[in-house]
Amino acid sequence: MSARWWLLVGATASGWVALALAAIGGAGESWWAVAAGAVSLGAWNRRLSWLSVAVPVGVVLLLLYSGSVVAGAACGLLVLFHVVLVDLAEDSYGASADGAVRALRPLVPGLAAAVVAAVAGGLSVVWARGVDAVTPVVVAAPLVLLVAAMVALGSETRREFWLWLSRR
């Protein structure tokens, strides 16, 4: 499988998880999630990659009338991943996995800041409202998994990656 294939699989997965999360946590009609997810598959076509905008629009519509703050932050993070991976996939025709990882490296600080902000913001609001302890754990689990995936992605490459990260 090419690097582009893996990037698009990651983009699709993160987009669909975001839509599912918004459909569960929000008060909108669930079929919006299905429709937006189906339309976002256009990103697999090189000329139709702009259709990936269906994911953020679908999530916003699902979260428009209700939904928890934590679910909103988690959806925002997943949509961010979706947008980044689609953008990387656009330029990765014929590129090796190593080339895709190299292109991903400069984005790590921004992604890390987004993850930290989403987790910290979401959890603080939840705890401030006095919600039971199970909900934040359930919501935070995918975010932790995403951070772990990023770490695994970095460790697969060379040791210079960590040196480079430390220099920044």
Partner: peptide
Amino acid sequence: VSQNPTLVAFALPGLLAMAVW
């Protein structure tokens, strides 16, 4: 507009990432 903090929380990760990038 809708006074919904959920949507602001949704936009927060993107805003931070963009500010860094």
